[in-house]
Amino acid sequence: PEEVRRLVEELYRKGVSPEQVKKILKKQGIDEREIEKVLRRIG
C-alpha cells in the first residue's frame, strides 16, 4: 500500500538500515511482507 511505501522511503532516506526499517514498522503492526516488497523495489 501507498502508506507503507511512504513510511519505508522516509526511514530509508534518513539512513535507517533495511533491518531497522523492518523492525520499526513491524512494531507499528505493518505486515513484514509488505515492508520487504517495498525495500526490494527501493534497494
Rank of each mutant, 00 (worst) to 15 (best):
E19C: 15
I42H: 06
E34S: 07
E10N: 09
V4L: 15
I30C: 03
R6S: 06
E34Y: 04
Q28R: 14
E3D: 11
K14E: 06
G29R: 03
I42T: 04
K26Y: 12
L25E: 00
G43E: 15
R5S: 08
D31H: 06
L39F: 03
L7P: 00
R33L: 12
V4E: 01
P1I: 11
V21F: 03
V4R: 02
E9W: 15
I35Q: 01
E3H: 08
I42Y: 07
E2C: 08
E36D: 11
E19R: 13
L7N: 02
K14G: 07
G29A: 03
L39A: 02
V21M: 10
K14A: 14
I30H: 10
I24D: 03
V38M: 11
R33S: 10
R41N: 15
V8W: 02
K23R: 14
K26R: 13
K22M: 15
R40A: 13
L11N: 01
G15W: 03
Q20F: 09
P18K: 12
P1W: 13
I30Y: 14
D31I: 03
K23M: 14
L7G: 01
K37T: 07
R6N: 06
E34H: 04
R41W: 15
L7I: 07
R33T: 11
Q28L: 12
K27L: 14
K22G: 04
K27P: 04
K22P: 02
E34W: 05
G15Q: 04
V21A: 06
L39K: 01
K26H: 06
K37F: 05
R13M: 08
D31L: 04
I42S: 04
R6W: 07
E3V: 12
L39V: 04
G29L: 03
R40V: 10
V16P: 00
Q28F: 11
P18H: 05
L7E: 02
G15S: 03
R6L: 08
V16A: 12
E2V: 09
E32K: 04
E34T: 14
K23D: 10
S17P: 13
G15H: 05
I35F: 02
V4G: 01
Q20M: 14
K37H: 08
V16H: 13
